[in-house]
Amino acid sequence: MTALMPEIRDSAVARVNPIAKLAVAVVISLTLLLSIDVVSASVALVLVGILLFWSGLDARQFWLRTSPLWLAAPFAGLTTVLYGEDSGALLFEWGLVSVTEGSLGLGVSITLRVLAIGLPSIVLFATTDPTDLADGLGQILKLPSRFVLGGLAGMRMIGLFIDDWRALGQARRARGVGDAHVLIRLGTQAFALLVLAIRRGSKLATAMEAKGFGSDIPRTWARPSTFGGPEIVLISIGLVIAAAAVTAAVLAGTWNFILD
């Protein structure tokens, strides 16, 4: 993975310590997982949408990074509508498929909840440099440096995997073996990428061990990771979003605590 683009790195959200972004994503996600209702998910989604204006992502970057979520959320909701638990008046029925008022409301709630949980997580971490995240995990959360640096090295390899996949496809086509059935081609190419990834991972692990990354001696960090006012403000905003979503659902009478 490469460093953030200048327009993203200079945004207000990108300058906040990644640990604060992680805390906000966890707070919002856990809150929305406590209830399945339209009101809490809608309120959280609207407030999160306002917060995303300070992420630094332009429209094209936003839609590209969140496109899988926009496809997955309606699919999850549609599945719930068609095959979820029936309750209320029957709206549509065909064979094993039945749509009732209850399943329709549940499907809408699931769709909104997936969006409200996924959007802040995707956008917040799209504005996070992997090295900054590793610095925060090691210095603020005090996680083992061996684990943190190993994870950082793996994240840095993602960009290379994309290049390797493209190069493998071109090489197979040049040898005349890239015209097989699409599923066969994907399977064989994925296996080749797996072998390449294992070899590269072994070499990388050996190199890191040789450079002392596996030592038990407490290590120093090149860049200090600070946690101050901007981080507290962002976490406070996350708490306000979670509290507003719960309060609105309780006042509207739609709060449905899943553990009851």
Score class of each variant (00 low, 15 high):
residue 73 A to N: 08
residue 36 I to T: 07
residue 77 G to T: 12
residue 28 I to N: 08
residue 69 L to M: 14
residue 35 S to V: 08
residue 18 P to H: 05
residue 15 R to P: 01
residue 102 G to S: 06
residue 21 K to T: 07
residue 54 W to C: 10
residue 16 V to I: 15
residue 15 R to G: 04
residue 98 S to F: 05
residue 102 G to E: 06
residue 51 L to T: 15
residue 42 S to P: 13
residue 104 L to G: 12
residue 39 V to A: 12
residue 103 S to T: 11
residue 23 A to Y: 01
residue 110 I to M: 15
residue 25 A to P: 00
residue 93 E to K: 10
residue 82 L to P: 01
residue 28 I to Y: 02
residue 28 I to T: 08
residue 103 S to A: 08
residue 92 F to D: 06
residue 38 V to T: 10
residue 113 R to P: 07
residue 36 I to H: 05
residue 18 P to Q: 07
residue 69 L to A: 06
residue 74 P to S: 04
residue 95 G to L: 05
residue 65 R to L: 09
residue 44 A to P: 08
residue 99 V to K: 05
residue 102 G to C: 14
residue 48 V to P: 03
residue 51 L to I: 11
residue 89 A to W: 13
residue 32 L to H: 06
residue 99 V to I: 13
residue 61 Q to E: 13
residue 101 E to H: 14
residue 104 L to D: 13
residue 43 V to R: 00
residue 37 D to V: 11
residue 36 I to W: 05
residue 84 G to L: 09
residue 93 E to I: 06
residue 69 L to P: 03
residue 26 V to S: 04
residue 24 V to W: 06
residue 84 G to C: 10
residue 85 E to W: 05
residue 108 V to S: 09
residue 101 E to M: 12
residue 55 S to C: 11
residue 86 D to Y: 12
residue 60 R to N: 09
residue 38 V to S: 06
residue 56 G to R: 05
residue 87 S to E: 00
residue 91 L to P: 04
residue 111 T to S: 14
residue 86 D to T: 15
residue 72 A to P: 07
residue 25 A to C: 07
residue 51 L to C: 12
residue 21 K to L: 05
residue 41 A to D: 10
residue 97 V to Y: 00
residue 94 W to C: 09
residue 93 E to T: 09
residue 89 A to C: 01
residue 87 S to T: 08
residue 67 S to A: 02
residue 60 R to I: 12
residue 23 A to S: 10
residue 79 T to Y: 09
residue 15 R to S: 03
residue 59 A to M: 03
residue 67 S to H: 02
residue 18 P to S: 02
residue 98 S to Q: 13
residue 42 S to A: 15
residue 52 L to S: 01
residue 110 I to W: 09
residue 77 G to A: 09
residue 96 L to D: 12
residue 74 P to N: 12
residue 29 S to G: 06
